[in-house]
């Protein structure tokens, strides 16, 4: 896949990720919104072939992925790092049944973070996944988005593995809290 994204504006990496998910035959996408995922969420809603579901909390999405899988659909869950802890017990569903999970997590609390309340869960996100046996991959720069998501999708859907792909806050950029004067 082409990846001349570094200088592009708006960034093309959400499109790279979306196209990769399409290549892997993902049929369902669910999310608790995050600004970093907003373009990917719009792409999902605009694609009639993808069944898109907005959640009230992230663990709903884990259970949704399980139901989709037993029904023959590949499903992906989008969330922000603050939602990772909400998923912990529900992840036992995926490991007990050895079901694929692919979740894409936009990171907060790790790079130029303005909101101290984001830091505890952001710092623990990777560890919380690993504690529950989830493989953690990371996207550090836009040009590796497609490759990392592709590796994660293969590991999940071909390898029956639970995989979280973390999107670095450094790449997502600083949230603008106040209008520049």
């Amino acid at each position: 896949m082409s990846s001349s994204t570094r200088a592009a504006s708006p960034p093309d990496w959400p499109l790279d990720i979306f196209n990769t998910l399409k290549e892997y035959g993902v049929a369902q996408i669910s999310y608790v919104p995050d600004a970093g995922h907003s373009r990917l969420i719009n792409l999902a809603h605009d694609d009639e072939a993808i069944k898109t579901t907005v959640l009230t909390t992230e663990e709903e999405g884990i259970a949704l992925c399980a139901g989709a899988w037993i029904g023959g659909d590949r499903s992906v869950l989008l969330m922000q790092s603050s939602g990772v802890g909400n998923c912990v017990n529900m992840l036992s569903l995926m490991s007990s049944c050895r079901m694929p999970l692919l979740t894409l997590v936009t990171m907060r609390g790790e790079w130029a973070e303005f909101n101290p309340w984001q830091i505890p869960m952001g710092s623990a996100a990777s560890g919380a996944f690993e504690l529950m046996g989830v493989t953690v991959l990371r996207i550090q720069s836009p040009d590796e988005s497609a490759e990392v998501v592709s590796a994660g999708a293969s590991l999940a859907f071909d390898g029956d593995r639970q995989v979280a792909v973390l999107l670095s806050q450094r790449m997502l950029g600083k949230k603008k809290w106040v209008k520049p004067r």
Binding site: E59, A66, G71, N89, M90
Partner: peptide, 15 residues
């Protein structure tokens, strides 16, 4: 997976 049954059902129903 307490609390997850309806969501497992939803994913299945959509599929």
């Amino acid at each position: 997976a307490m609390g997850g049954a309806a969501m497992v059902g939803l994913g299945l129903a959509l599929a």
